[in-house]
Write a protein that binds this DNA or RNA. Structure first.
Lengths: 90, 90
DNA sequence: TATAAATATAATAATATAATAATATTGAAA
DNA sequence: TTTCAATATTATTATATTATTATATTTATA
């Protein structure tokens, strides 16, 4: 579930984080779960593009989502790991 | 020098680590500096390809190199940060 | 100073990723 | 049960990355 130990798995997680938009999404989700439109409003980016980035984060094991009414809320699967990861780069 | 605090800089470092070959190079360099051919022998990869990956790691601020006789030795600029980064994914 | 070993650079072809535009799906409420 | 808001999917185009091949550069040494 989520984070991987092997080489390809690790590289995949780094790849998921290797885009400014996705990195911003992750930083936002460190504050708590957010629905797609909340996330979209943070950027000058189209809705389908955000959806695509979210999908990349999802199949990389970084986020997951749940339906909440007619909203789809995304959240970090392992927020503490991501917090540590990003803290190292400060 | 090396690691960056801003969004693009962070994304660039993740991008540098987002390839299995480069990740393996970094893991090897955690043991200490290595010349190109030492690194090359670890993989089934051509010499120019290793050189290219090393160059990506270099301009991303992850490694630097120094001449040592006729060898060029690569080393991690901030080994402790990388050690922490990789430890998070375990 | 010619040669060999070590490494880098350049050009190319193959592949992957990104953004965009158009369309489809889903759930809630009217 | 139609409509709307929220989100996803698909296809397309543009761009970036990767591996490969060929060639160049550099350093040490014969």
């Amino acid at each position: 579930m989520g984070f991987q130990n092997n080489l390809k798995g690790k590289a995949q997680i780094f790849k998921a984080l290797a885009h400014p938009t996705r990195l911003s999404i992750v930083e936002k989700l460190l504050e708590g779960e957010r629905c797609v439109n909340d996330i979209r409003d943070l950027f000058e980016v189209t809705q389908p593009n955000i959806s695509q980035h979210l999908n990349i984060l999802k199949y990389s094991g970084v986020v997951d989502c749940r339906q909440k009414g007619n909203l789809r809320c995304y959240f970090l699967i392992e927020p503490e790991k991501l917090r540590k990861l990003l803290n190292v780069l400060k």
